[in-house]
Simulated scan of single mutants.
Amino acid sequence: MTVLLAPTRPLVRAAVVLLSCTVSVPLALTAAPAAAAPTGPAVYRVAPGASVQAALDAAVPGDVVELAAGRYPGSVTLATDGVTLRGQGAATVLVPDPADRSACARAGNGVCVTGSSDDQGVPVRTLSGVAVESLTVAGFPRNGIGAAVTDRLTVRRVAVHDNGMQGISVEMSTRTVLTDNEARDNGQAGIFVANWYDRKGGALETRGTEVSENRLSGNRIGLQLRRVRGLTVEANLAYGNCGGVFVVGDDGVPRAGALTVRDNVVRANNRYCPPIPRLDSVQGTGILLTGTEDVTVSGNQVSDHSGTSPMSGGVVLYPSVVGAPNARATVTGNALRDNLPTDLADRDPHGTGNAFTGNACRTSEPTGLC
C-alpha cells in the first residue's frame, strides 16, 4: 500500500492532513474543517488499513495522530518531540503483525518511544513531550509500550495486556506521567520504571515522575520501580498479581529511593510466580522494599495477601539480591489486614533507621511494629 503525503507543509496548516491510499481501504485521514488556526498543529486521522507509521513520520511537534476505532497490525515508533498518538479507547487496538520487520517489531514491542543512548547507556538525544493516549496494545512478545531516554512522556488511558514482558516499560526517563492506565496479564510487570532494564549502576533521578490511578492485575509484579529516585506512586489499584508494588535497589550509588508510595489499594496479590535469576519465587506480597533508602510508604490499604515466599506479607522490608540493606524507610499510617504470614515484616537484618509508626494492623515480624 502506498500512502501519499502532501509534498510541503503550507504556512497556514490544515487542522487535519489528508492521506490517500492506492488500494481500496477506508481513507487514512479525512478532510478538515476549513477554519484552522494559522501555523497551528495538525491532526492526522488514520483509519484501519492505512499506515500509522507514515502519519507519525510526517508529524512535527504539536501534531496529533488520531486513530479511528479498529485493529492496527504492526508496531509503531514515536521519534519526534511533542507528538501525540491518540486512539478511541478500548475500540482502538494495536496487535502484532508477523510480517512487520521494523526495528520496534524486531525488538518485540508494540509502541516504541525512543530517544537514543551510546553503547554505555549514556543518553545522547532525549525525546521530549510525547504522549500516548486512549488505545489498547496487546499480545506483543516483549513490551506493550517501550520507552527509553525521554522527558515529559505521558501515557494515559491506555490498556496494555497479554504482552510477554512489561505492559508499560519506561527506562532512563525523567518527568514521566503514567496515569489512568490498565495493565493486566503481562509476563513481568504491568508498569516498569527503571534506569535500564539490562544494566546495573546508580539509580536514575526521575525529577518527579508520577505513577497514579492505574489498575494493575494478573501480572508477575503490578508495579516495579527499579534503581530510580525522586518519584511518586499514588492512588493505584494492584490486585491479583504475584506481587503488588516492588521498589528495588542494590548497592549502586546513588541508591534507589527518595520516593513516596502513598494512598494505593494493594490487595490479594496471591498468584504464584516461580523463581527467576536474581529473584526468589513471588506470591502474596503487597508492598516490598529491597535495597532502598529514604522511601515513604504511607496511607495505603494493604489486605488479603497469603504466600510462602520469603517476601510474602503486607508491607515487607527485605535485603536486595546483592545484600544491600534498606535505610531510613518510613512506613506510616497504612491500614493492613488479613495478610499472611504477617501484615508488617522487617526481614532486613542489616537495615538502618527504618521506622514503622501509626499503622493499623494486627500482626508484625518482629512483634511490636503495629
Score class of each variant (00 low, 15 high):
Pro33Asp: 14
Leu231Ile: 03
Leu19Val: 00
Arg215Met: 09
Ala159Asn: 02
Leu78Phe: 12
Arg142Gly: 10
Ala159Thr: 15
Cys242Pro: 05
Arg267Val: 14
Gly323Cys: 08
Pro325Cys: 12
Ala36Cys: 15
Asn339Leu: 10
Val25Trp: 05
Asp348Leu: 08
Val321Lys: 06
Gly313His: 08
Asp185Ser: 12
Asn269Pro: 10
Gly307Leu: 10
Asn269Gly: 11
Ser51Lys: 00
Gly202Phe: 04
Val124Gln: 14
Pro26Val: 04
Ser320Glu: 09
Asp57Met: 09
Val76Arg: 00
Ala256Cys: 15
Gly89Ile: 03
Arg157Lys: 06
Asp280Gly: 12
Arg9Ser: 11
Thr136Leu: 13
Ala105His: 03
Thr30Gln: 11
Gly146His: 01
Gly299Gln: 07
Tyr318Lys: 07
Pro61Asp: 08
Ala15Glu: 13
Gly62Thr: 05
Tyr272Lys: 09
Asp251Ser: 15
Gly167Cys: 09
Val93Trp: 01
Asn339Met: 09
Pro38Lys: 03
Asn359Gln: 09
Val211Met: 04
Ala335Leu: 14
Ser102Leu: 15
Val83Leu: 13
Ala32His: 08
Gly62Pro: 03
Glu133Leu: 15
Pro7Trp: 08
Leu204Ser: 07
Val25His: 09
Thr8Ser: 14
Leu223His: 00
Leu340Arg: 13
Leu223Asp: 00
Ser134Ile: 08
Asn186Gly: 11
Val60Pro: 04
Gly144Trp: 04
Ile191Pro: 00
Ala35Pro: 02
Tyr44Pro: 00
Ala194Asn: 07
Gly115Lys: 09
Thr308Ser: 15
Asp250Lys: 02
Gly74Val: 07
Ala324Asp: 10
Ala268Val: 03
Phe192Asn: 01
Val52Gly: 03
Ala58Phe: 04
Gln301Gly: 06
Ala14Lys: 02
Leu279His: 14
Ala360Cys: 05
Val282Tyr: 07
Met172Val: 04
Val160Arg: 05
Arg220Ile: 06
Arg45Gln: 11
